[in-house]
Design a binder for these strands. Structure first.
Lengths: 348, 348
DNA sequence: GTACGTGATGTAAACGTTTTCCATACCTTA
DNA sequence: TAAGGTATGGAAAACGTTTACATCACGTAC
């Protein structure tokens, strides 16, 4: 019992050619290299092709061209998937540009126990993709090292510090972002500013921390080690760490969080203690996730334009596939500090 | 300036055959139909194939077999993308089963302005996928109608009411879920239960509403029209509608929300008015998104096993591709009511 | 001893494109 | 008018598989 039969009359290039009274070569040329064929026949073939609803079979094309006409994105295994909206926005941005270029987007999620690199191997060594987008870069990123070694085109969202060979990336400058955020708090008069960071192996963790450090250093304010914590980017983690920070004897007057989710947790902890974010304690997050507008108080944060990022990443990858040199494909964007209600001058 | 060169020595089936001293047909058989070849040669070929790291070129295979070896998922355009974690969990579940089966997952996101059906057309008429997963079904779902008409295998997450031809689906019974939730509230003594629903065209909206209606009917409690609202599933929408419900003269003692995000909004509205969820007003959501555990109070809700759903959807789709009859591929799961802190007996 | 099934392998065709090479006809130019 | 360039289109090879069919050797049954 066969579940489905293939479409009754597959209309292939032969059919179009026959109908138009030309060779298949001509039909192919009309579609891929229109200038190589006379206007009259071009029109005729085109008309017939659309009338018949002809769509070149992608597999034939791919085989002949030796390309997959597909780019890949590997989504890390979900235990540790803390940024849902990030990936979906990115996906949306990627998809948009790709379908315009006639490319497909292959998404692989590596199963929980699996080595992430294995997913990449499968995709590139199995010739399933022409290029890749690498997200959530780590400080030393073996994925990037691997792709460089294989000499396969890719672009990375975020840099990887400890890799010497240049490669294309698009990064939003987390250092700058948190430099601005910290400076803002300093200008408001804060001196006791705590920092809840991200896991060290993630590259942006280092950058955001560096921004905080730089601002504090410039202001001549020493950083208390007990106010320098590291969370796992989950809401709950922010909540837990806030408990530590808010315990006596001395509380910070402001808390900087490496992402919004943790900031949400901090706000929850404040609320439970009857403290109001933005009054007793200022809180600033990073990412500007959708919920950030609706917290109580609305969360001040550093905005990342994920969607635009995705779109640009596609452009860069396309350029790379087209042979553009790496040096032209390294961008660092400056993020924007979005002040809502969760920051304010310190209580006297 | 070419961005990258293809791998220096592509190892194809010919190479393996030559190395093993057999014909390419034999190599192919070893990989696809091992019983057709003698144990000795099978071993030898296998050994050589792995030593050389041979991977059949997917495009050759796909062309010959006339299949895409890919299944598709269309993610709706993000304005209106209210369930981030839903799609990512689903993706994770799908991906897991698929890579085991050697299939790829093609994800298309239709650009904001675009007709969603167009994405489906592109995928199936362009022969880019062998099958599809349809998510977030609508009451009359043109996508399902289209796929049925095209006779292309698919499974749907959720049913579509107004389509007569049977098709494979996996649904979590929202009616049952909210029937249980409402009954629970009734048992607690609530009589004034409001309902914030989802947009009517979404199929689960109808189901969840029906569960509420059924329980109220059985209890002999008339439903007040002013307590029957419809939101857009966003957190903010829940917040706005709660303002209406909480306005004098008379407030409901419990509010049922068609999804957790809106329930979060309701909790926020309560908080702002100094009311405590679960004491003054009970709130129950639907979905059990990650944040639900961490709200204040923790949100009582109806749990949907998205990940398992994704895994099962793949199994069903595979079965369908293998020719299983539709009648064996229709499942309705019973969800689980998860009681946390946001429900309780009504205030006297 | 001939005929025949059977198991193992090879040959070659096909899948649907793109692209290289040729052939033809035309136009230009000396 | 001959020579050579240019525009146009066709024939055929190639991309890397899978699979229908042919071949061959061998054991078995009569």
């Amino acid at each position: 019992m066969s579940g489905h039969k293939p479409s009754p009359l597959a209309v292939d290039i032969r059919r179009v050619a026959a109908e138009a009274g030309v060779s298949i070569a001509t039909v192919s040329r009309v579609l891929n290299n229109p200038s190589r064929v006379s206007p009259q026949t071009r029109e005729r073939v085109l008309e017939i092709a659309t009338r018949l609803g002809y769509r070149p079979n992608p597999n034939g094309k791919r085989l002949r061209k030796g390309r997959a006409e597909t780019i890949g994105l590997v989504i890390p295994s979900p235990p540790g998937r803390f940024a849902d909206s990030f990936f979906l926005e990115l996906l949306a941005g990627l998809g948009e540009g790709l379908s315009d270029a006639g490319l497909d987007l292959l998404v692989a999620t590596c199963p929980p126990g699996t080595e992430e690199l294995g997913c990449y191997r499968r995709l590139v060594e199995g010739k399933r993709v022409d290029g890749l987008v690498v997200a959530r870069t780590r400080r030393y990123d073996e994925r990037i090292a691997y792709l460089l070694a294989q000499n396969i085109p890719f672009v990375s969202h975020g840099r990887s510090d400890l890799i010497s060979t240049p490669y294309p990336y698009l990064d939003v400058d987390g250092q700058q972002g948190f430099y601005m955020a910290t400076q803002h708090l300093l200008h408001l008069g804060h001196r006791n500013i705590a920092f809840i960071g991200a896991p060290r192996e993630l590259n942006f963790a280092t950058h955001r921390l560096a921004g905080y450090r730089q601002a504090m250093l410039e202001a001549g304010i020493p950083i208390r080690p007990e106010w320098l914590l590291e969370g796992d980017l989950s809401e709950n983690s922010g909540y837990q760490l806030a408990q530590i920070l808010l315990a006596p004897p001395e509380m910070p007057t402001a808390i900087l969080c490496a992402n919004d989710l943790m900031a949400l947790g901090v706000l929850r902890a404040l609320r439970e203690r009857g403290l109001k974010g933005g009054r007793e304690v200022s809180v600033i997050g990073y990412d500007d996730i959708p919920q950030a507008q609706y917290t109580d108080p609305p969360l001040s944060t550093v905005h990342q334009p994920f969607r635009d990022t995705g779109k640009r990443l596609v452009e860069m990858l396309l350029a790379r596939l087209g042979g553009a040199p790496v040096s032209a494909l390294q961008e660092v964007w400056v993020p924007e500090l979005v002040l809502r209600g969760s920051d304010g001058p310190p209580q006297p």
